[in-house]
Design a binder for these strands. Structure first.
Ligand code: FES
Ligand code: FES
Lengths: 150, 150
DNA sequence: TCCATACAGAACCATTTCGGTTCTATTTTA
DNA sequence: TAAAATAGAACCGAAATGGTTCTGTATGGA
């Protein structure tokens, strides 16, 4: 169903908590678990992924925690989703990198088009920052102009 | 990874076969299996779904088969995907219809925005017809203007 | 010093979904 | 009436997902 995984959704939810608190705010995993209503293990797991991807920086030990490593306006949905779920690829053939043959590529007349559609989706998500996510697109029925698929 | 299921991909592949042959062309499941390189059972299964959704009309019995029930220019990717995989919904909360609570909705400040993003994706796919799919967007690095996310 | 706090990393498991096959009707026509 | 062809559903193994648990390491304070 072209569905985002739950964990990716959690990732965005967590990142928005940081975004709302503003640059420099530090939260521990347990802080975020209670704030978000998610289970602590899941929060831990997800924060680690976000940290590994460089979206959060971490501090161990007493009074440690996580904070945004960039401003909320400089972090996009595409990055968050890729950090948690891996690269965005509607079909297997369009994953950048490894053995990307879906098995039917020799008969598939639409591969090039899929690539373009895939890029359009990725660009669309790459055009939306956390800063924009924390405020509803007031009254909008569509994405703001500069966020349109290019 | 925001991935299309293989079966939805197969559905598009099969529909493009009809589109290339033009309105009125009739194919049996076994015809399409050999043409597409997919297994017969899988082709059967997928064609049934496309037929149930009204994109193909079927004729049983000897010399029967399937044909497009509309012109290729009037069938969109969104319809094909929805026919095979169900409605397009990036997160559970945005499925039209049944119990669409993802469990974290009370803490989720981004629900409205997701709805908009989701609609943008759906509209994007709804703007691409089979007729367009069977010819590469020649030289294009992005979708044609009228297919842009609205 | 030493312990509690908090992240890092990986293994682990149950459940669901997915990809694919098989079986049994029902319709149609030669 | 037999063969061709779709309709529908059940079925199964494999993979992905969601979620937990365990071990290790760094930090800072009592
Ligand atoms: S989907 Fe793989 S080549 Fe068409
Ligand atoms: S994802 Fe369900 S409400 Fe935000």
């Amino acid at each position: 169903m072209i569905r985002l995984t739950k964990q990716a959704d959690y990732g965005i939810l967590l990142m928005t908590q940081f975004a709302r608190a503003g640059m420099g705010a530090v939260f521990s995993a347990s802080d975020l678990a209670s704030r978000s209503g998610l289970s602590l293990p899941m929060v831990n797991k997800t924060l680690k992924l976000l940290s590994r991807a460089g979206l959060l920086s971490s501090q161990r030990g007493v009074n440690g925690g996580y904070q945004m490593s960039r401003d909320a306006g400089a972090i996009t949905l595409e990055e968050v989703i890729a950090a948690v779920d891996g690269p965005i690829a509607l079909t297997e053939c369009h994953e950048h990198g490894a053995g990307n043959d879906c098995g039917i590529s020799s008969h598939c007349p639409t591969r090039l088009n899929w690539g373009i559609i895939n890029d359009a989706l990725r660009d669309s998500l790459a055009g939306i920052t956390l800063l924009q996510m924390i405020r509803p697109f007031l009254g909008a029925k569509s994405l703001p102009a500069r966020e349109r698929v290019a």
